[in-house]
């Protein structure tokens, strides 16, 4: 399936891009991360400390165990600092 991936803040900087479309068979967010880490050191650096990474699936905050079935967009970012 095709997924639109978005990266924000220091994840974007470490990965070196803010958006990309990928083809994947990953069934969960955890599987997707494992797949991305193998791509190049930038992804490995971005997902090094998973406790400081948050994920949104189709713009809803979710857990890493969330299924990617019929999902279109996955966004990775650090804990939010609004206000």
């Amino acid at each position: 399936m095709k997924l639109n991936l978005l990266y924000f803040a220091w994840l974007r900087e470490r990965i070196g891009r803010g958006q990309e479309i990928i083809e994947t068979d990953a069934e969960t967010v955890t599987e997707l991360i494992a797949e991305l880490i193998l791509r190049d050191p930038g992804y490995a650096a971005a997902f090094e400390d998973i406790s400081s990474v948050r994920v949104a699936v189709d713009q809803n905050l979710v857990d890493f165990s969330t299924s990617l079935a019929s999902v279109r967009e996955v966004a990775f970012f650090p804990p939010m600092t609004g206000g």
Partner: peptide, 14 residues
């Protein structure tokens, strides 16, 4: 509103 906005609205400050 402020508590939610600070930790759950997708903003990041540098």
């Amino acid at each position: 509103l402020m508590d939610y906005l600070k930790s759950r609205a997708p903003f990041w400050k540098k």
